[in-house]
């Protein structure tokens, strides 16, 4: 593995009595693409959200590029700017145009000039194929288009790593591929990515590693090829059996 960019050590978290993250140890190398899969409720979203501290953890450490996650405040905001996040429900800013969605972070957080931010935003929108929609509002776009804008919005911050939490789960089937194609492109370009998804096609095409979670633990991890054809643990075999028969 290349030098580690995101390192989780001995991370634990509860929601009330529920132990959602149990002794999580995970290293993600620069340029590595890690797919996280596992049954519903196994803690995948929580893991993803802990990496940019949308969820706090109780014990253990998370470092990004060698720096531990700071407490809530300006410093944390700066760190989050370096960590892109793409949500299942897109979460585009509903009252802003597509273009303004993409330029908000660069202008307010990176203090870029409006003209420069807009020029770059248009390039990114073109890259994800929605440049025609720049002046529209999120509600006027299809789900697939909105999710591609959300990716462009993250990219505009030049993040060191991008987190995707089931980015295609809320999409109609015919729109899934347009989003996955953009993500495969990002992976090819060397973006460091953590992707929670059950899209095995994507995992096979783009992932360096699959991490399988169950009951808040990392049960096993392997290359996609090895994991999908030759899973070792019973939990993983059982899980794969369920999703493969569908």
């Amino acid at each position: 593995m290349t030098e580690p960019l995101v390192v989780l050590k001995d991370v634990n978290k509860h929601f009330g009595d529920l132990h959602v993250l149990r002794d999580i140890d995970l290293e993600i190398g620069k340029g590595e693409v890690v797919v996280v899969i596992g049954p519903s409720g196994s803690g995948k979203s929580t893991l993803c959200r802990a990496i940019n501290r949308l969820e706090t953890i109780e014990s253990g450490t998370i470092t990004i590029d060698g720096k531990p996650l700071p407490q809530e405040g300006k410093e944390l905001a700066q760190l989050r700017a370096d960590v892109g996040m793409v949500f299942q429900s897109f979460n585009l800013f509903a009252h802003k145009t597509i273009l303004d969605n993409v330029t908000l972070g660069p202008i307010k957080v990176r203090k870029e000039k409006k003209a420069a931010a807009e020029k770059r935003a248009m390039e990114l929108l073109e890259r994800v194929g929605v440049q025609q929609q720049a002046q529209k509002y999120p509600a006027q776009l299809s789900g697939g288009q909105q999710q591609r804008v959300a990716i462009a919005r993250s990219l505009a911050m030049n993040p060191k790593v991008m987190l995707f939490d089931e980015p295609t789960s809320a999409l109609d089937p015919e729109m899934i591929n347009e989003v996955l194609d953009v993500m495969v492109g990002l992976a090819r370009d060397g973006m460091t990515m953590v992707v929670v998804t059950h899209e095995m096609g994507f995992a096979r095409k783009a992932a360096n590693r699959v991490v399988f979670m169950a009951d808040g633990q990392i049960v096993e991890q392997d290359t996609p090829e090895e994991f999908f054809t030759n899973a070792k643990s019973e939990r993983a075999k059982d899980f794969l059996g369920k999703i493969l028969t569908h």
Binding site: L54, A77, G84, M85, S89, F93, A94, H95, K108, S154
Partner: peptide
């Protein structure tokens, strides 16, 4: 999700209030 997206982009509490939450 609007507040989460604002925080994830790196806006501070004040900025996400001003730019995202309060206008809506």
């Amino acid at each position: 999700g609007q507040a989460e997206a604002a925080r994830a982009v790196g806006l501070t509490f004040g900025q996400s209030m001003r730019e995202v939450i309060l206008p809506q």
